[in-house]
Amino acid sequence: MNFQKVYTATDVHIAGEVFRIIDDVPFVQYGSLKEFDEQLPSVFLEEMALLLNEPRGFAGINGCLVVPPFTESGDAAAVFFNHEGTLPIHYGGVIAVVTALLESGRLKEKTAGEYFIETVQGVIPVIAVKEKEQVVSARMALGECTVVKTDVPLLDASYTVVQADQRYALFDNKALGLKIELSELSTVKKWGKNTLQELKTNPDIQGVILMDDEALVQGKIKTVTFRKDGWIVRSPGFGPTAACFASLLSRGGIEVDQTLLNESVYGSFLESKAHHDRKVQFAVNARAFITGLQTFVFDPTDPLPKGFLIK
């Protein structure tokens, strides 16, 4: 075996969604995090494919690079990417980064438990609670989340347009009668594929959420979120959770200061809460788990140097 390149990474999952935090940052000059983010697709393209695509990765994995902060108040800076390119922000990735840095000792524990991660969209504060060398919970405020339009007709249903971390088409399951259960996943996936196909005429929609609020009186909902490429988000999703909360608030289904649990089709949870601070602000509580400290190698004789994705 010819080890031409060797890469190390920390794998972390939050409610089932996987983040690969890669230690090998490309040696390029950059004056700002935005400049580094802009350079990444050209200087790190082969590595992004190698480390996210199968057989080393899979369709649902997210990548992340951590670099020193640019401000005195920042604890670290992070750039996120997936199979399609860089991402301006990934809320789950921010918590994954804080957890990995704290549990590995690369980030010094603070008495107040507040840490600041710089992203292309600004500095994100995270409140992390650490017990016995493990981060047992982390809470972060999300960006603005707004209901843009309601009752948009599509086929035999209608949807609500919500702007969160991206723009979502949110469908209420009452009119559809689907079961958000793992045993019914093939039926749900078929619905998602057909819905995304119909929404191709609306380029602003970047994701589709199917929400079941049957247990809302207990403060619980179940959701499935489809990315624009058709893949299901492996967790309930930070942006989708806030989008559902904003929609429910707008129609009086839930009150500010209530806690909302969002359960994924896989049985994982994210906890969200809203409060008034001149405008409604959303926060999500979650816990991340380190699943592996990985070493990857690239052999130039490998017939799959860029990997592959099965769709």
Rank of each mutant, 00 (worst) to 15 (best):
P68L: 07
N262P: 00
V66L: 03
F3K: 15
V12P: 01
P240L: 01
A283T: 13
A59W: 07
T225D: 02
L182Y: 06
D165I: 01
K279E: 15
G192N: 05
F27H: 15
L154K: 06
D299G: 07
D151I: 12
V97S: 03
D23Y: 09
L40Y: 09
R167W: 02
G92S: 03
L154I: 15
L270K: 00
E131C: 09
T187L: 08
A59Y: 11
D277M: 06
G267I: 02
A78H: 11
R251V: 10
T295S: 12
Y168W: 04
Y266A: 00
D257R: 13
R56P: 04
T119G: 05
F27R: 15
Y168K: 03
L142W: 07
G177D: 08
G63H: 09
A243L: 00
K193F: 13
F58G: 07
L270Q: 01
L216S: 10
D204C: 12
I14S: 00
F245D: 04
P26V: 09
N53Q: 09
V67A: 02
F44H: 10
E118G: 02
L199N: 04
D11N: 13
G31S: 13
A283I: 05
G230F: 02
V297Q: 12
A169W: 01
V233A: 07
F58S: 11
L101A: 08
P203Y: 03
L50I: 11
Y159I: 08
E118S: 03
A15E: 01
